[in-house]
Design a binder for these strands. Structure first.
Lengths: 213, 213, 213, 213
DNA sequence: TATGAATGAGGCTTCATTCAT
DNA sequence: CATGAATGAAGCCTCATTCAT
């Protein structure tokens, strides 16, 4: 069982290729892996399928990766910017906290929708391999903590219901959004209209925290 | 690939045993399967482990089940009453909708906590086998629809925020509760104190729907 | 591996049932076995299928037979009269040897056609189990020897080509008829019209032996 | 159930190896398979025996074949030239049709005797697997048709009995030869002296078609 | 006689991983 | 760096046969 990539902080044996050709091959493998994983799922994806998609040999695969888990880590790594940190959109703070929440939710949901298949895959792998569950949990935790800080701030400013526990509320509401995104976009169960989902999520955040302003 | 049990409505080849002895053996296998699945996960669970746990032979296993999937279906089936429909607790309607929601959430979370490992397993299998995903989705849908009806009723009675879409809100809030339960009880990430979670969930439902009026 | 039935002369452990009920059950099993064997082939036929067809239990099967081979032997045994000794038809000897040959061929082919599926089965089993090959060979030998005697007689009477070896010619011509029957009736490759086949076989026998008379 | 080789025209998943080493290994497997099949029969032959005979691993087997059936197809394929179309020997046409028939029969029987075990195997497999029965039938059909054309030609030239149906007679006489070959060489029942068999077969063909004229 | 649950040996197959070229 | 043939551990599953009821 290979250790997984840099995303988890676990050191890997394989280093990044130095030559241009090597970089190109590695990149092709990561791209191919994403295609195959999204098409067949993590478990059904075979290394031969990935190398076939990348038009290289199995041997070449092992030049760059230690195994399935590690390419998967590389796939996640390659998508993380787009996926995990959708980049806070330009929201004038002076439009009020509701606007910030709405913008934040929209940004998250847009990114989620764009990477829906990968997110589904990530969920699958997280349920299979505890190391990826840890990756998922860490990223969720970071997201939750940021939201918790925001909520606490709003409470301190007297703008939010002071009776809710900021950490737990942030977690609950974040899970609400991410899970709804998962079901609607990844599983394709339910409405796929983005704005509809943004609206509900935002309303439930705003109401839930009693953002009176 | 075997078809899965009656839970899904899909017919299975193997019939229920008619004799007392057969019934006992089948039951032992289901119980053993639950133990092994919860301990090793669905993928790592081997049939030999299950039959060893049930102290019978592999052949006997195949007398009652067509494969791993089918025992798993039987495990779920055996736990469904306790798990999926925790039974509405006796809540005096006259204590108001908030009390009903709280009782409902508590009942759900209590049942979830009791079956936490199985719920985790179900999530895992649902991510692996689409037939079980369908089972999970169906049960979630039923739960969501029931809540949607309640919300609509409250809206009609002027007790809930009329601007939220009942279906989507019900879904979002249900997912919030179930996912929080999943993380806290199944993954054991976060607080495991039941009442704390009940409180937050209830508060967010109540606030979210603006039931304060 | 059980020994096979009386047809082969090999003694079997199981004796014929003494009670009326036992006889009925045994008969039902033999009948069912023929149905299942003809439908699924010897290899694919499972004992459960046979007992299901006979509406009795596996245990009952072993009351009467020692295994698959033995029921098969019983099936053959039950069909042998019709199959192996089609009974010499009433052919006035004075119509000449050609008429005798024709009548003989017709009788054989009629019986073959009637039991085509069983004959195919017998071929299959003979290729699988040497003991049944021995059964088949013995019966073919008997047939061949009878024909050889006839040929020799015709040669002695100056009616047949004296240059052919009676044994080998009898064998060759017998094989010709039986194999043609096999292909046309059992495999259903080629013409299934009985008289057409009778005509060709007879003509080739008559010409082949130069039955000038 | 794997599809069988190119002999049948059915496409196979596994491609021919490109490297020299691969070619050698595949060849070793085919050769080993023939040995094991001929020794143990198709049903008793285990893949381990074949790979042991070829001194390679089971995994290697699956690099080249999809299963037992497919190696068997390859074995047949490898032997087909020698077996199925023994190549018309150089027979001066002017020696008359009888000489052609004799030469043809001898060529066939010589080839048959050389591959007797394989022919027996082929018969066995044909009785077990309909796809191989189809292969056998096709090859027999081709042989029969060729002979039918010959007979018709002889009839047209007034050299053969015009009352026999060319197709059916060709089939009957071909079956006679092939079946006699099968019994004498494959089953080793009866005379194994080639010339004796050639003589009888030729005599019965010649007489049967009345080529004496 | 009849039943049918229990048995378990042993074949088949997959695919991540290695390594000689 | 690239190749792809070779490996073999590891699980699944079948079904004839037994035997206690």
């Amino acid at each position: 069982m290979a250790s997984i990539g840099s995303l988890t902080g676990i050191a890997t044996t394989k280093e990044m290729p130095t030559t241009r050709r090597g970089l190109r091959t590695r990149e092709a493998l990561v791209k191919a892996a994403r295609v195959v994983f999204e098409r067949d799922g993590f478990l059904n994806a075979r290394l031969v399928d990935i190398t076939a998609e990348a038009t290289c040999s199995i041997g070449t695969f092992y030049t760059y990766f230690e195994g399935k888990e590690e390419v998967f880590a590389a796939v996640i790594e390659a998508a993380r910017h787009d996926m995990l940190h959708p980049g806070m959109p330009h929201v004038p703070e002076d439009e009020g906290p509701a606007a910030v929440i709405e913008a934040s939710n929209r940004a998250y949901l847009v990114a989620y929708k764009r990477n829906a298949k990968l997110m589904k895959l990530m969920q699958q792998v997280a349920m299979i391999d505890p190391r990826f569950e840890e990756v998922r949990a860490r990223s969720a935790r970071a997201f939750g903590e940021r939201n918790a800080r925001r909520i606490k701030e709003l409470q301190d400013r007297g703008l939010a219901d002071p009776t809710v526990d900021p950490e737990l509320a942030a977690r609950a509401l974040s899970l609400m959004v991410s899970r709804l995104a998962f079901e609607c976009f990844a599983l394709e169960e339910g409405p796929r209209d983005l704005e509809e989902i943004v609206a509900v999520c935002t309303r439930l955040w705003v109401n839930g925290l009693n953002l009176s302003a």
